[in-house]
Design a protein around this nucleic acid. Structure first.
Lengths: 214, 214
DNA sequence: GTCTAACAATACGCACCCGTATGGAGCAAG
DNA sequence: CTTGCTCCATACGGGTGCGTATTGTTAGAC
């Protein structure tokens, strides 16, 4: 929200270029992070870019770093928000499957499909951060180490699979009101022993996890 | 296996080009399907290519069509192999998660991440074919329509998520002997009511689903 | 042995992108 | 006002890919 395209901007910063690079990356893959097209999109020429960055690769690195930082902070923010109540943390996680940041999910997919080493390692760290967080939640629920690990990878796979299915075959995914029922189904299956009465999902469409994400 | 690189080949066929295109696609994405690099890799020049195909796009279409056809046939072959026993079909499906064709899974990922319309529709049809097959299995198990649908999308998401995790964070996935235990865990959770004694997974590392694939 | 088709090499023009070099426009300090 | 710094424009060279045009080369039909 800092600077719309119309506003007269005196000069661009490296962050502006990194942000534009992330947009292009999410839209068209790593190859879409091209200096000259980005410059056109920002209303400047290459001369501007090569003042801020020595090379195209440097821009990619900077964009990846900024994205990864924000993504990690999101996980931490979620943990802080529901501190102390592991069951509510897991519930909240599943509910947020429907409210993920589209750009981040596209980035995760697109960068996972590339052969760029740094990008792959970046999504690896982000995924690992998310998975270990879920694992912590399950451990806090009282599960032993190995079971927590199993449930966590299980839940994490379901998360990635659902996000991807929402991209590939959205029509096959339960729509609108029935999606909440599907979510209840997921939670009933993914939260192991306790909660015999299948604790109800209260107000399933809240808590946009990536609210301040831009 | 039809023609190794050393064998003196009198002339190339369109299928040879399509196959090479699929390899390149799986290795480096759609952008890697470039005429001149492919020609170099096949030991010829562009002159050969533009005899078989009018344009690069035509090659992509042909490659996608060939791949999709084989992928659909794989599903049918699996259904024929375990005709009549729905429970065994589902078991077999989960066991084969560990034995998928790497090239096909990379193609599914890479083409899902692209913005090429035909490619996206291709992975959409393949995914939908797989999902409906699982849904049929659950229905044959005696589940009502909506429950079968839920379990099928659930299982399909787990499948995609696991495949993807094996690419992104393989170290976090249970390795070797413990993977079978994780599979048992999956099956115990993913096959709904019956099988109270958690029917054992017999010889979990067999039945390479894509054996005659290349 | 010629003729014809399939298949392939060479050469060309075009477009796009990277990275460099160099020269400005604006502003701020002295 | 001049010096210097920041940010950007312009112009260039090199690389690579697409598609076309033109000209071989080989194998089989007759």
């Amino acid at each position: 929200m800092k600077n719309s395209s119309l506003e007269t901007r005196v000069s661009l910063s490296a962050q502006d270029w990194a942000e534009a690079a992330l947009d292009a990356m999410a839209a068209g893959g790593l190859e879409a992070v091209a200096v000259e097209p980005l410059a056109r999109r920002l209303g400047v020429t290459k001369g501007s870019f090569y003042w801020h960055f020595p090379t195209r690769e440097a821009l990619i690195q900077a964009a990846l770093a900024a994205w990864e930082k924000r993504e990690i902070e999101d996980v931490i923010a979620h943990a802080d928000q529901h501190a102390g109540d592991p069951r509510e943390r897991i519930h909240s996680l599943f509910r947020e499957v429907a409210n993920t940041d589209p750009r981040s999910e596209r980035l995760l997919l697109v960068l996972s499909a590339t052969d760029h080493l740094a990008a792959r390692e970046c999504v690896q760290r982000i995924n690992e951060r998310r998975r270990t967080y879920v694992c912590d939640c399950y451990r806090a629920l009282g599960l032993p180490e190995d079971e927590a690990h199993n449930w966590a990878t299980f839940a994490h796979c379901i998360f990635m699979g659902t996000v991807r299915m929402r991209r590939d075959n959205p029509d096959a995914l339960p729509a609108g009101p029935q999606f909440n029922e599907y979510l209840r189904f997921l939670i009933r299956t993914l939260i192991p022993p306790a909660s015999p009465s299948a604790a109800v999902v209260r107000s399933a469409a809240r808590l946009p996890r990536a609210a301040g994400n831009r």
